[in-house]
Amino acid sequence: MIEYLGKISDHLGLPVNAASHGLIMDLVLGWVHWVMFILFAGWGLYFIIALIKFNSKSNPKADYNGVQSHYSKFAEYGVIIVEAFLLVGLSIPLWSQLRTTVPDADAAIQVRVIAQQFAWNIHYPGADGEFGDTDIKLVDEESNPIGLVRGGAGADDIVTLNQLHLPVNQQVLIHLTSKDVIHSFGIPEMRVKQDALPGMTIPVYFTPTMTSAEFINKIKDTNRYSPSGNYMGLGQETWEILSEEKKNEFRGFQIACAQLCGNSHYKMRGFLTVETEEEFNAWLEEEAEYLEEEDEDDDW
C-alpha cells in the first residue's frame, strides 16, 4: 500500500535513481506530493463550489455569519498531523542516515573532491590508501591544480580533472571541499547534493547501484541519449564526430554544480563513471601507470 502510494514519484519526472538510498527519498517525495495534491484538490473543489454557489446572482444577500461548522478545523489538524509525521517519522531519521552517519573510512572507497572555478578535481589516495598532503604554494593550474605534495603518502596519489570513477555497489566516501568560491556537488541520479565550501571539508557518501553502462541502456530512447539543440553545449558538429565512448560519457552520470560560482557555472560539469569492480581496478592501474610514465619524463 505504502509503496503503491509512493509510486506517484514515478510520475514526478525525477531522474532515474541509481543509488541505494534513492528509492526511499523518491517515495517520501511522492508521499509529500500526494499530500500537496490532496490538499490542493480538496480546497480547489471547495473553492469552485463556493464561487458558483455564492456569486451575487445566485445569492443576492450575503449571510452575516457565514460558515458555522468547524470542519475546517479538522482539515487544519489533519495538516498538522501529516506534517508532524513527515517530519518526525521520515525526514529526521532519513537525514541522520543520509548525512550524519558517516561510514567508516576503511569500509568505503575514499575520494577527495576539490571544486574550483570551473572544474571538479578528483583525488584518489593511490595504492597506499593514504591521501598525500597539499600545499597551496604548490598549486599550478596546469600540472598540479590541487597543490599535492608528491612525496610520502602523496607519491602514488591519482588526480584527475572532472573524471570520477566508482565501483558499483560499494559505498563511497567523498571528502568535499573547494579551492576558491562556493560550489555545490550534485549528481541528480545519485540523489546527492552538497555545497563545497572553501575552508571546510564535508563528507558526502552514497552507494551507486547501477553502472553507467546499465544506465545508458536505460535511457536509450530519451533526449539525453540523442540530444538536439545545442548538443549538450558542444554543438552539432562536435557531437557528431565524437566516438561512441565519448558520447556515452556525456550521456552518463554528470556532476552538476548547483551553486552560482561565476561566469561558467552553467558548464561546470564533471563525469561520473560507475563500473564493475574489475573495470574500476583496471582504470586505477591505468592511471597509476600514466603517473609512472610522467615521473620518468619528470615533467609532471
Partner: peptide, 21 residues
C-alpha cells in the same frame, strides 16, 4: 524535479539530466 540547477546561463543545455526538459 528533473534536477536542473538554477542560475544556468544556457538554461541547462550543457547538462545531461536537463535534456529531457
Amino acid at each position: 524535479m528533473a534536477g536542473v540547477s538554477r542560475r544556468l546561463a544556457d538554461g541547462g543545455e550543457s547538462y545531461a539530466h536537463a535534456q529531457g526538459t
